Computed example of a mutant assay.
Amino acid sequence: MQALEQEIKGLIIESLNLEDISPDDIDPEAALFVEGLGLDSIDALELGLALQKRYGVTMSADSEETRQHFGSVRKLAAFVSTSRTK
């Protein structure tokens, strides 16, 4: 699971063009939105598309379950691990 977390951290940095941040700077349990990494709803859409492209996962943009998956890198990795098709 750690390798997948590292992959997702890299995907976050790459897809959102985050400069001056490395995968090691992202705490896998830290919040991705508001506090923590400080992402916003536009970032969520871009990250969701990147996850769909890379891992073949599907998610509903306005579901509470999807919001929970985007809570942290660790939660995203668990979701991708159980849902990916590629």
Score class of each variant (00 low, 15 high):
E14W: 00
P28G: 08
L37A: 08
I12D: 04
P28L: 09
S22T: 15
E5L: 00
Q68L: 15
A50Q: 07
F79D: 11
I21V: 14
L45P: 01
S60P: 08
S81P: 01
E29K: 14
E5K: 01
S83M: 10
A61S: 13
Q68T: 12
I26R: 01
R54A: 12
S60C: 12
Q2H: 07
I12E: 05
A78W: 02
H69E: 12
S41H: 05
V57P: 09
L39K: 10
N17P: 01
G10H: 10
D40C: 10
D27P: 04
D62H: 11
S72F: 11
A44Y: 11
D24W: 00
P28V: 10
E46S: 11
P28Y: 03
I8G: 03
T85V: 14
E46K: 08
T85Y: 01
F33I: 08
G10E: 14
A31H: 09
I21D: 03
G56R: 11
A31G: 11
L76F: 10
R74Q: 05
S41P: 10
V57K: 08
E29D: 15
L11S: 05
E7W: 04
I13G: 00
I21Q: 04
I12T: 02
S72H: 04
L45A: 07
K9D: 10
T58I: 03
I21N: 04
E35R: 05
L4R: 08
L76M: 15
E7G: 02
D20Y: 14
L45H: 02
D62F: 13
V73D: 05
H69A: 10
I21Y: 01
Q2N: 08
D20G: 15
D62Y: 05
E46H: 13
S60D: 15
L45W: 02
A44Q: 12
